[in-house]
Amino acid sequence: MRFKNVFSIIGPSMVGPSSSHTAGAVRIGRVARQLLGSQPETAKMTLFGSFAETYWGHGTDLALTAGLMDYETDDQRIPQADVLAEEAGMTLEWVQGRGNGPHPNSVKIQLTGGGRTAEIVAASIGGGTIAVYSLNGFDVQITGEYPTLAVKHSDSQGVLANMTALLSRDGYNIGYMDVDRKGRSGDAMTVFELDSAPEETTIQAIRKLPHIKEVTMIDLTKRS
């Protein structure tokens, strides 16, 4: 129920035949690109379920590629996204996954670019709504409906308290928070879905907190 929104009722503004296979896929691609922080140089898409069976016919491949190019769901360039990505120097690989994904319309995206890597597991769950189940190997959930901070940090005492206190100090309300850790005192990731996008000064302040390793802003509410 957490993943339902107005798109589930009226559908998004979009280019393509299917909100699940195109609009949702565009949004998944944009999350992956924003997690990487730049235009990908290589992208490997492992498709599961209905995505794997029908992605050519429904344009899911074009939609995911368009998202990686940071296009919106209503961008008129979506039908040419594969050509435009190739012209931009992006190398794409499509793989049919084995077994079941977390949802019939799910995909694992692995990216490289700018000396960085990124990986997400996500699904298009209807009406353009998405569910992201994993970020860079951490099992956290986000919807893409709200500005989201993804923070990689050490699993150390006081880290969560410091982050939430800083966000509260700067006037940001946390609508949802999720944490995953690799082990006691190991690496962890916390995601914050916020009611409004934080200013860069707040993001930089979080980066300077003890035990913080990486802070990434994911914001599909901002037009590209």
Rank of each mutant, 00 (worst) to 15 (best):
V107E: 02
I125G: 04
I142G: 00
D75N: 14
A122S: 12
G115E: 09
D74Y: 13
P102E: 01
M69N: 05
G137Q: 12
D74P: 13
G144K: 03
E87V: 10
Q96G: 00
F138W: 14
R77I: 04
S106R: 04
T112N: 14
D139N: 15
G113D: 02
E86S: 08
N100A: 15
G115R: 03
I78R: 00
G89T: 13
L135M: 14
P147E: 02
A88M: 07
W94K: 03
S124W: 10
G114Q: 01
P104E: 10
K108V: 14
D70A: 01
E93K: 13
G115P: 06
E145N: 14
A88R: 11
P79W: 07
I125R: 03
G89P: 04
L111Y: 03
W94N: 06
I130Y: 08
Q110L: 15
G113N: 03
S134T: 14
E86Y: 08
A88K: 08
Y146I: 01
G137L: 15
E119F: 01
A150G: 06
P147Y: 00
R98K: 15
Q110E: 15
G127K: 07
A118E: 01
E93I: 09
W94M: 02
G126C: 05
P79S: 10
N105E: 09
L92C: 04
W94V: 00
D82E: 12
P104C: 10
G126H: 08
T91E: 14
P104I: 07
Q76K: 10
A131L: 13
G137W: 14
N100S: 15
P102I: 13
G89W: 13
G127S: 05
R77H: 02
R116E: 10
L84A: 06
E72D: 08
A118Y: 02
